[in-house]
Design a binder for these strands. Structure first.
Lengths: 222, 222
DNA sequence: GTCTATAGCTGGATAGAC
DNA sequence: GTCTATCCAGCTATAGAC
């Protein structure tokens, strides 16, 4: 029955979100889904496979929702507003908690890391598209390739959500979004200065530089 | 014996780093430390308490190493170089992996979240000090309070390290640091334009704004 | 497709010898 | 402080009735 599969996936998502990877056992998930423990293995083969299915489901839900947002981002400021909306919605729904649990949980199950990594690709390419759109219509396109910035955006959202999930305080993160919004408004206003902002592209700029005590910065003792 | 305590803490760190929270059982840690499983409970009372001791140990090691770095950060560029050094050293040592495992693992153990949160405070205040030093000697001090930026820095490092740990690719993150370094060099050069960059401080700037379809951005359907 | 029952294992935690 | 031995709970996974 298709209902049972779906119920198990929903229960897996709920369990990952509320109790974490370490507590996401077949028994606990089945209880959450009000069905028998053996059905986990009948429908998915193993607990890990069920958890991966849950992650893919979450990934799909996010993609659908994000694509709506993508249509609306024109300026840098709008992109940041979009990111803020995404951030809050993800916190409410627990989607990123599920991702974070799977990322760190994948250290405990051989081979799971690669599968999670594959599942993350659409999120990155979504962010990349959004960033590229904004860069194209702004004078800051030369700052960095969209792929690099997108990696930073995904990492930043992940980190912010983990911290917010830890102590329940989302205001620190929201304040950052508001600052970024204000900064973006300024940047959108100083386009004429573009020439100043063309940077030499890749490659490490210089050796560790201000070597007062040479080598001291290179290999710390921890 | 003090040696056993230390050995167990080291083994707990190694286990968290290599096999994750879900696999960090008393038996496995004791095996890693070449000692008896019952000693975990004799010395620490419970597995969670041992894991917390491990996190505190890691936290302490990082503080010591970071404080050295702090003495050397003067300009924005130097701060970013410092962050880059920290990032690589943490990846090599696995320190942030331990933190990430404990953050997500804390969802599985009642009360653990608060303890991890407390343990995170020094990291944030370290970042805040570093940021404040740089802001004070730059024209961008008015962009945002150091505490807000520090929160973003900690979140960014956490997210970047989780992604790097997932697929073993640290080059995406390093490229970002190099971009940031180049940007910082430019910013250090355009101090005269300071006036342009004074922003209205707190408070959300405006309602969701470009409401082509009003309300569509506010409550996505996932 | 769903259930019960169970094998076989690993987990946290304790008691008690040394 | 360290070890052995042990209790019992919970886990994955499978076999087999329905």
């Amino acid at each position: 029955m298709r209902d049972t599969r779906a119920a198990l996936i929903d229960a897996a998502i709920a369990t990952l979100r509320e109790s974490g990877f370490a507590a996401a056992s077949a028994r606990r998930i089945a209880a959450e889904a009000d069905c028998n423990q053996a059905l986990v293995f009948y429908h998915f083969g193993s607990v890990s496979d069920l958890l991966m299915a849950a992650l893919e489901e979450v990934s799909g839900r996010r993609m659908a929702a994000y694509r709506e947002l993508l249509d609306r981002t024109g300026t840098l400021g709008e992109l940041i507003d979009g990111a803020r909306t995404v951030f809050e919605a993800d916190l409410d729904s627990g989607n990123v908690t599920v991702l974070a649990e799977m990322i760190s949980g994948s250290h405990s199950v051989p081979g799971l890391g690669e599968r999670v990594s594959v599942c993350l690709a659409p999120w990155r390419s979504f962010a990349e598209t959004a960033v590229r759109d904004v860069l194209a219509s702004s004078p800051f396109g030369s700052l960095a390739p969209a792929g690099e910035i997108a990696h930073g955006v995904v990492a930043g959202l992940l980190g912010l959500e983990m911290l917010a999930g830890l102590d329940g305080d989302r205001s620190s993160a929201l304040a950052l979004f508001d600052r970024a919004r204000a900064l973006a408004d300024v940047l959108d206003r100083i386009r004429p200065l573009t020439g100043l902002l063309t940077l030499a592209p890749p490659a490490r700029p210089a050796p560790p530089a201000p070597a007062a005590r040479p080598g001291a910065l290179c290999r710390p003792t921890w």
